[in-house]
Amino acid sequence: MVEMLGTREMYGDTLVELGSENEDIVVLDSDLSSSTRTSKFGERFPERFFNMGVSEQDMIDTAAGLAASGKIPFASTFAIFATGRAWEMIRQSVCYPKNNVKIVATHGGITVGPDGASHQCMEDIALMRVLPNMTVIVPADAHEARAAIRFAAKNRGPFYIRLARDKFPVLYSPDLDFELGRARVQRVGREATIIAAGLMVHEALKAIDLLEGQGLRVGLINMSSIKPLDRQAVLDAARTTGAIVTAEEHSILGGLGSAVAEVLAEECPTPMRRIGVRDLFGTSGEPQALLAHYGLTAQEIARAVGEVIGLKTGGENR
């Protein structure tokens, strides 16, 4: 049995850890602290926890003010409300003046499930990636989430970290180190490479097993650091395997797939396919059913890998 661990549970625990290590850590939430697990911090450090009520814009700007006076604010709510409702506050008051605000959003992606389209955020990476000074991280398991959160606390500047509602299989050990802008090459490939983030790293692993059965050796990169992107890792994969598939629980517009396509188009044009939500809103359903409905599955990834390999012309693109 694979061990499952929640990234948001880990967030709550990590905040408590950070709170006892550093007095300057403060936490804000917009009436979702029981869901985001910031309530754990709130119980432990009530004087450093600010529930702002249902007011995401106020939360972000208040966090900016706290940061401007030397605090290290973590601000949390669901991904769509953090990045959508408060986008311009993040732009004007967090990113432009480089305020030391850490936005950690839970409930990213389609696996939010039965709540449906209003709560399923497929746009957050695009919205955050376009902002100068912003760092964007999508951890693939709870241990990576913890490492990324601790990294954000220790390094100045605006961060966006996307967490999920559902638990993820455990991929890494608890003592994992986080290095910004450094991809995790999970497996070196021969015929193609999958570049994935978050939940889709796990689907990609299953896809690799499926493809192994067909005699294909496919590589996998966990691109948890979406901005800054590990361009070198993308280029190395393109040059050695000559075919790329990206996979993300996000719109194919503006997210990881776009970031990888930008690098490849400019520096090493390579056959590629993007797995993601194809310019659609979500809908209610159970997470697994939704992943299948929107084509975010190991089967779809494997199919896309087959397709890009077929697109390779004149053999290896070394």
């Binding site: 106020d58 030397g70 605090k71």
Partner: peptide, 14 residues
Amino acid sequence: LSQANGIALATRLN
């Protein structure tokens, strides 16, 4: 005003 609140909360904590 939100940012002023944030600044004021920080100076209070400090």
